[in-house]
Design a protein around this nucleic acid. Structure first.
Length: 611
DNA sequence: GTTAATCCTG
DNA sequence: CAGGATTAAC
């Protein structure tokens, strides 16, 4: 699927709620694995991933991101900013006589003449609002007198959007005042303008109310005039009206001009603001990356620029009460880091620096998204091919960065970042002779760049700890969290395999415990409550966090609990006899991935795991 | 045929 | 945990 067209379309689409629907019209909201044609009964063994798009956790990135940016634009549209054409059309809608009069002033004297009769009313109303106090009754009679003229208009209105009706009513009211004048031109032209006006009209409700009030006063006043003046005075009245109408044209032209300028300047300010924010964010990212790189370099020289607090000092061999946990300051290896990002998923995905993290969060919120093109986990080259030309970050080919509008705003710092294979995407598959797999795998010794391609037991421990946060990391995320590893096909596959094994163990435990709960007579899955004191929790902690290197994330209890409940209800309802019954569970758990704290990336984190 | 993820086995 | 087998999406 190509992301360019629909995505850019959605960016321009004010009604972006529709974007996901039109974007993936073929996707049903249900998980794909329940579709009959995907269930294969050939084998008796449990097929969990069969029929599932591989790397499905990677496939859900775009739509949410798309929504994210689309929402941003929705905010703009619903907010103070608006595009210039829309602004003028809105102005046309609300003040049809303004643009009309300004346009007609120099162009067509006949049409301008026609309009004069119509438009003068507003000027008159403006000049008489203070002394005019006509009763409502009189206004009603004014309306009744023009009912016959409205009939034709009424027919047209019935076909229009009902939201326009009140506006049309205003126009009719205005036209009704214009007894016997050639309203045909004004009526038809204003009608066409009103059709363009709908989207932006609400911005001007208040102004509209003001002018409606004025028009009402005017209609009252005109009725008075009619009563007072005889038919032979009409000529005199017309002259008077023309004079005032010229004043009106000037006034409203000014008003229109100032309103337009106001709208345009607001739009400009908003755009500047957004771009400035983006630039600021990117500058922060760049600074962060540079400092991280400096840190890494420093580290390779054997110096440690930071002082780190003891490891997981809050842990005393027992798990704390979850409620205490929730109020406790995050205790990690690098407290300063953890406080900002570690245990606060909101902060960590507010800031844009980690695209993988951000996109992952987006993914978490979008349960069943369409599958994208299969991407090779172990090979950045293929990803790079799939991504749009020039986007070398490569890990999210379908991300919003493919959008023509947004791509230019993403950081050039991403290009050639170490986490993406040190920037040599195209060459990784061929493996340069110096960095070939065979050469690198001969020994765990670092090359001149300070990175090795060998995954050590420390890396395994770290990966296990990462599993507490995310069960379904994609390869790009994994690579980003092992910056000291120079990845190739083999070690990437190994790392991915690790997580596959982690999941296997995890789900096996869940299956086992869920059946135990059922055997113990538990009836409702809601009765399954997991706390850090739970046996299953301790069991898993023993497996993945043997020496209690970190305090497990609070969310882990929820993940375990939810997985247990899913397995429980599946077994309870006998679904476990169905083929591929675990896949639905995997889908659920897939969505519960969390962001991994940034301090996992720090080289010192790995050192601390040795103890 | 290639690839990714799981299942199975040791 | 790793290797091989299996399956299904490309």
């Amino acid at each position: 699927m190509s992301s360019g067209g629909p995505l850019s379309q959605s960016l321009n689409n004010r009604f972006n709620q529709l974007a996901p629907l039109q974007y993936f019209p073929h996707i049903s909201p249900l998980p794909s694995q329940i579709l009959p044609h995907r269930i294969k009964l050939k084998r008796s063994r449990q097929r969990v991933d069969a029929g599932e798009p591989r790397n499905s956790y990677q496939g859900n990135r775009l739509p949410m991101l798309q929504q994210r940016f689309a929402n941003g634009f929705q905010l703009l549209n619903s907010g103070e900013t608006t595009s210039t054409p829309s602004a003028s059309s809105a102005l046309n809608a609300i003040f049809p006589w303004i643009t009309q009069s300004t346009q007609n002033t120099d162009v067509n004297s006949n049409e301008g003449e026609a309009m004069k009769d119509c438009d003068v009313v507003h000027d008159l109303s403006q000049h008489n609002t203070d002394n005019d106090d006509t009763t409502i009754q009189e206004r009603e009679t004014s309306r009744k007198s023009s009912v016959c003229e409205e009939d034709e208009e009424e027919l047209l209105d019935s076909e229009r959007n009902p939201n326009e009706m009140d506006l049309n009513k205003d126009d009719k009211e205005k036209e009704s005042c214009d007894e016997g004048s050639p309203t045909l031109i004004a009526g038809s032209s204003s009608s066409s303008r009103r059709k363009n006006a709908l989207p932006q009209r609400q911005c001007f409700n208040k102004l509209q109310e003001m002018f409606e009030t004025q028009r009402r006063f005017y209609s009252q006043w005109i009725e008075q005039q009619r009563k007072i003046l005889g038919a032979n005075e009409e000529e005199h009245k017309r002259v008077q009206i023309q004079q005032v109408q010229q004043q009106l044209q000037r006034d409203f032209a000014k008003l229109a001009q100032s309103l337009k300028q106001e709208l345009i300047s607001t739009l400009n300010n908003s755009i500047d603001k957004i771009i400035n924010e983006f630039i600021t964010a990117e500058a922060a990212i760049s600074a962060q990356r540079i400092s991280a790189a400096a840190l890494e370099k420093e580290q390779s020289l054997g110096r440690n620029p930071f002082l780190f607090q003891p490891f997981y000092t809050h842990f005393n061999g027992q798990f704390a009460n979850p409620f205490i946990n929730s109020t406790m300051n995050p205790s990690g290896i690098f407290p300063s880091v953890t406080q900002s990002t570690g245990f606060n998923p909101f902060i960590s995905h507010i800031k844009p620096p980690s695209p993988t993290a951000t996109i992952r969060k987006a993914d978490d919120l979008s349960p069943f998204m369409p599958r994208k093109k299969r991407s090779k986990v172990t090979d950045c080259t293929r990803l790079n091919k799939l991504s749009s030309a020039g986007n070398r970050e490569g890990s999210h080919p379908d991300s919003a960065r493919s959008s023509p509008m947004l791509s230019s705003y993403f950081p050039p710092t991403m290009v050639g970042h170490p986490m993406y294979g040190q920037g040599n995407f195209g060459s990784e598959e061929r493996e340069s002779p110096i960095n070939s797999d065979d050469a690198s795998d001969c020994g765990p010794y670092e090359n001149s760049t300070g990175s090795s391609s060998t995954l050590t037991p420390m890396h395994l421990r770290k990966a296990k700890l990462m599993f507490f946060y995310t069960r379904y990391p994609n390869s790009a995320l994994l690579k980003s969290y092992f910056p000291d590893i120079r990845f190739n096909k083999n070690n990437t596959a190994q790392l991915v395999k690790w997580f596959s094994n982690f999941r296997e163990f995890f789900y096996n435990q869940m299956d086992k415990y869920a059946r135990n709960y059922l055997a113990e007579g538990i009836k409702n899955k809601e009765d399954i409550i997991v706390t850090p004191e739970s046996e299953i929790y301790k069991n898993l902690n023993q497996h993945y966090n043997r020496n209690n290197h970190i305090q497990p994330p609070e969310k882990l209890t929820l993940v375990i609990q939810e997985t247990l409940r899913e397995f429980f209800s599946a077994v309870q309802s006998g679904r476990d006899s169905e083929p591929s019954w675990k896949k639905t569970i995997y889908k659920v758990i897939n969505r519960m991935d969390d962001t991994i704290p940034e301090y996992f990336k720090d080289p010192n984190f790995l050192e601390r795991l040795e103890g």
